[in-house]
């Protein structure tokens, strides 16, 4: 007996067919591969761009925030401090921005063929993980160099938590991304919001400054920094690789709950929009 498939005007909002996504896993990985092959074809430096970008951003941040503005870096070598923050932030922000236009950029394919729409944002998250790993290795290379130069860094066992931090960042990026992508089908304004919103979001996250500084300077307003679910993740990352920063299970749990709620809302909205967005996009 063949499987019966019923198409109704509206499907249950909580009906996320994970089994179907699994059936399309080959497509997921082909999309990941396509992203890699296609992005850097016909560029001279190719995948080197993955590395050039964080290195140069680190350099600029070191000069501007470290030298010119003299923002303290928790007594860590500025290069490592910024690079750690930038690598993590890049992963989150790229996951967010690149999933936030899922519907508008894929309208062409979506209008012609059906496959579980979540495949597209998931493929973005995965290709970004690969990018994160490459950039992470560069960071580790720098870290090793500084370590043997005798810099005061202290990588510790908290590194083992890295996979969890990665999942948290991926979940947050995906959650925000699919939520925004669902909203952009109705209001294109959100596209513009994403562009500079992410930039502002970075300054609300301890990327270029340590959380300890925010606490010290902002006083009672420092809850703003903690309300941001990305803060605890980046701080934990800095703590585990560099030995300085806030490592708080309490705040990480908050980020985790935030992520779960965000993902649920995101997936439900996405689910609702994906059914008929072709009529409105």
């Amino acid at each position: 007996m063949k499987k019966e498939d019923i198409i109704l005007p509206k499907k249950n909002l909580f009906d996320v067919n994970l089994k179907e996504i699994w059936q399309y896993k080959d497509l997921l990985f082909l999309f990941v591969k396509r992203d890699f092959v296609a992005t850097y074809k016909q560029t001279v430096l190719g995948p080197l761009w993955f590395i050039i970008q964080p290195i140069f951003t680190t350099l600029i941040f070191t000069i501007i925030f470290g030298k010119l503005a003299s923002i303290p870096t928790d007594n860590l070598p500025p290069v490592l401090f910024y690079m750690c923050g930038i690598t993590c932030w890049n992963y989150f922000s790229e996951s967010l921005t690149k999933t936030s236009n899922t519907f508008t950029t894929n309208a062409n394919i979506f209008g012609k063929v059906y496959f579980p729409r979540l495949i597209i944002p998931l493929s973005v998250i995965i290709s970004n993980i690969i990018k994160f790993i490459i950039q992470g290795l560069i960071f580790v290379l720098f870290l090793t160099y500084y370590y043997y130069q005798g810099a005061k860094v202290d990588p510790n066992f908290a590194i083992l938590i890295l996979p969890i931090l990665l999942v948290l960042m991926a979940g947050l990026g995906l959650g925000f991304g699919i939520l925004i992508s669902s909203l952009t089908t109705k209001y294109r304004d959100f596209q513009f919001l994403v562009a500079f919103g992410v930039q502002l979001f970075m300054y609300a996250t301890p990327v270029v400054y340590p959380l300890s500084l925010a606490k010290e300077k902002l006083g009672v307003y420092s809850w703003v920094a903690f309300a941001n679910p990305m803060s605890s993740i980046i701080e934990a990352m800095k703590y585990s690789f560099l030995g300085q920063g806030e490592f708080s299970f309490y705040h990480l749990t908050y980020s985790f709950i935030f992520m779960v709620i965000l993902l649920v809302i995101g997936v439900i909205t996405f689910n609702k929009v994906e059914q008929t967005f072709m009529d409105t996009v």
Binding site: K3, E4, D5, I6, P9, Y114, Q275, M278
Partner: peptide, 28 residues
């Protein structure tokens, strides 16, 4: 488009058995 699940009907239902593939365009 309704049969290939690209968009959904306003009313009614479609019951299909087995795997459906749609070719609304070549080279999608």
């Amino acid at each position: 488009k309704l049969l290939s699940k690209v968009t959904r009907p306003t009313k009614g239902k479609i019951i299909s058995k087995g795997k459906t593939a749609s070719l609304l365009e070549v080279g999608t």
